[in-house]
Write a protein that binds this DNA or RNA. Structure first.
Lengths: 334, 334
DNA sequence: CTGAAAGCGCTTACAG
DNA sequence: CTGAAAGCGCTTACAG
C-alpha cells in the first residue's frame, strides 16, 4: 500500500505537506488539490498505526463484557459502539464468559494495544489488572458491575428497591416459600440482588432456607440446572425469582419441560426485561433496567475522560418492577 | 509508561536483548531473568502499536455486521471472537445498522487501522470499498451475505431447500393465501428467501400477489409494520412467513396486539430459530441455521488466510425446517 | 505556505 | 548470546 512518501513524491511536495493535507493543517488550495489527486491515483490511505505511535493515541476503545449473548450487554455494547463511532473511536470487543482469567488476558492485550480507554463489566469483584490500568492512567468506566478500590466512575442500575418491591408483591400474594436463582454473589449485581431479596423476605417475616437459594453463573444452562434442583425439593418453592435474563430463559425452559404451569403451580419473575417476555403466556413479570440510558451514559463518559475534559461522576439509575402475569397466589389459587 | 529503552537501561542490556526476551529469541537464562525483573519493576508492557508498525501486522481483525441486536449475528460474532482470541487476534467490532454509508465508514477505518483481515456481512450487494480492500490485499470472508464480484470465500447457510419445504408444508396443510415478510431483496439472504418462497408457491399452483409481499429491513419494527399491513388486507393471508428472527419478533408482537390467534386464525413461521421460540404457545415453526458451525468456519478461515497458509474455499451449509406448533390448516380447522 | 529533521517504540538482519 | 543501527509511516516544532 502507498505511503505518505509515495504520495509526496507523486505530488512533488514534502511528506510534511501531505501530512497537513490529511491532518488539517494550513495548505494552499493548489497544493492540496495536487496532493489529493496524487493520493487518489495511488490509492493512499493514511496509516493509523504509524499515526498512533507518533501522537500516542490510538482512537480505539476497549469494551470488555461477560457475555455478548446476553441481550442486556448486547444492548449496552450497541450504545457504546454507537457513541464511540460518532466521536471517531473504534471499539475492540472482549467477551470474558464470566471467566476472570479470560478477562485478565483481555486487559493485557488492551493495555499493549494502547487503547485510549476501557469500558468494562468485570467478572469478579477483584482484578489485579484493573489496578495496573489505573496506574497506567488509562481511563476506565465500569458498566453494570465494578470492583472496589479502583477509582473509576460506574454506570449501572440499582436493583435493590425493585427487588424489595417484588418480594413485597409476592408476599402480598400470599407466598411464604420463596426461592431465588442467584448469580455469583461475588459480583456486585449478583450480591446485591441476592441480599435485597433475602433482606426483603426477612423483613416480611419470611425465611429463605439455604436450600431455596440456588446459585448460577448468570448463564442459561445454570438457570435450568437451578430450577431443576428447586423443583426436586421436598418442599419446593411456590415462587421463584431468577437474577438475570439468561438464567430466566433456562429456568423457563425447565418449567416447560417439567410441565409446571405458571403461575397456577409456580409464580415466576426475572431480573432484566427482554422483549419476548411479553409474548409468553403468561407474560413474565420482570425488573427492567433503563438500558438505553445506561448505554448512553457509558458511551458519553469514556470519550469525555479520554479527551480529558473532566472526571465524570458515576451514574446510578433505578431498575423498575414491571408486573405482568407470571405471578399469582400460591396453591393454584389463580 | 515504561518503554523498551527504560527496561534495557534498568537491566543493563541493549534494547535488542529486551526485544528478544519478549519476542522469543535466544537469550541466556541469566540475562532473561534480569530483563524480566527490570520490566517487572518498571511495569513494562510492550507497545503493540510500535510492534505493529515495525512488523506490518496488527494482530487485529475487523468484524462488520448489520446488527449486534440480532441473535444470529451475535452468535456468529461470539464464535468469531472466540477463535480470534485463541489465535492471538483482537476484534474491532462494527455495527452497520444495515446502512451502506456506515458500512463504508467502517471499512475505511479498518483499512486505515491496517487490520489483518475482515469478516463482513455486507448491508447491500455492492460496495466500492470492498473492491478497494481486495486490491489492498486484505483477506476478507463474507458472513451470511456477500457481494458479487469480490473474490472472497463465503460462509453461509443456504435456505432455499428449507424455504421450499416450508411452502410445501403450508400448501399441504391447505393454505392458498400465503404472505411473506421479506428482507431487502437486494441482500443475498433477502433475495434468496423471497425468491424461493415465491418459486415454491408458484410450483404448487399458488399465486402470491404483490400485496401479500411485505418488505421489511430485517429489523423488528419493520416486521410489526409489515404484519399490520397484511392484517388490514381485504383478503388477509392465512399463513405468514417472516424472513428473519427480528422481523418475526415484531410480527408476533403485532399478532398479539391484534388478538389474532396462532395457529387457529393465522399460521406463522420464521426464518432463523431463536431459543425463546420454543417457549411460546404455540411454539414457533422455524428454519434453523447451523449457527455454531457457521461461526466456527468463519472463525477458522480468517486467521488461516491472514497467515497465508491457504485460500480456503467457501462454506455453504444447509438451513433446516423445524416444524413446531405455529402452523395449522386454515380457517380455524386446527 | 512549505520543507528538513527528529523521534514515537519497536524488530531484525548483520557483525562480533 | 549480544549490541549498534536502520527503518516501519507518520507528526510537528523549527526555520525560512
Amino acid at each position: 500500500m502507498a505511503t505518505i512518501r509515495d504520495v509526496a513524491r507523486e505530488a512533488g511536495v514534502s511528506v510534511a505537506t501531505v501530512s497537513r493535507v490529511f491532518g488539517g493543517g494550513g495548505v494552499s488550495a493548489g497544493t492540496r488539490e495536487r496532493v489529493l489527486a496524487a493520493s487518489e491515483r495511488l490509492g493512499y490511505r493514511p496509516n493509523a498505526v504509524a499515526r498512533a505511535l507518533r501522537v500516542e493515541a490510538t482512537r480505539t476503545l476497549g469494551l470488555v463484557i461477560p457475555n455478548v449473548m446476553n441481550p442486556f450487554f448486547t444492548a449496552v455494547a450497541r450504545a457504546v459502539e454507537d457513541a464511540a463511532r460518532e466521536r471517531g473511536y473504534s471499539l475492540i470487543l472482549g467477551n470474558t464468559d464470566e471467566d476472570p482469567e479470560k478477562e485478565a488476558r483481555y486487559l493485557e492485550v488492551l493495555l499493549e494495544k494502547r487503547v485510549d480507554g476501557i469500558a468494562i463489566s468485570p467478572a469478579r469483584a477483584a482484578s489485579p489488572h484493573l489496578a495496573e490500568i489505573e496506574r497506567a492512567g488509562v481511563p476506565v468506566v465500569f458498566l453494570d458491575r465494578y470492583v472496589a478500590g479502583v477509582e473509576a466512575p460506574v454506570v449501572r442500575a440499582d436493583g435493590r428497591r425493585a427487588v424489595d418491591e417484588l418480594v413485597g408483591y409476592l408476599a402480598g400474594l400470599g407466598h411464604r416459600r420463596l426461592a431465588i436463582i442467584s448469580g455469583p454473589p461475588e459480583t456486585v449485581t449478583g450480591g446485591e440482588r441476592l441480599e435485597s431479596f433475602l433482606a426483603g423476605a426477612r423483613r416480611r417475616g419470611i425465611g429463605v432456607p439455604e436450600e431455596r437459594v440456588a446459585y448460577g453463573d448468570f448463564r442459561r444452562e445454570s438457570g435450568a440446572r437451578a430450577m431443576r434442583r428447586l423443583l426436586r425439593l421436598a418442599e419446593p418453592p411456590t415462587a421463584v425469582f431468577a437474577a438475570n435474563n439468561l438464567m430466566a430463559l433456562g429456568a423457563l425452559e425447565e418449567l416447560d419441560r417439567a410441565g409446571v404451569r405458571v403461575p397456577k403451580e409456580m409464580s415466576f419473575a426475572s431480573f432484566d426485561d427482554v422483549s419476548w417476555f411479553r409474548l409468553l403466556r403468561p407474560p413474565v413479570t420482570a425488573i427492567a433496567q433503563p438500558i438505553r440510558r445506561l448505554g448512553e451514559a457509558a458511551a458519553r463518559m469514556l470519550p469525555e475522560m479520554v479527551e480529558g475534559r473532566e472526571r465524570p461522576g458515576s451514574v446510578v439509575l433505578e431498575a423498575e418492577l414491571v408486573v405482568r402475569g407470571s405471578c399469582a397466589a400460591p396453591g393454584g389459587g389463580g
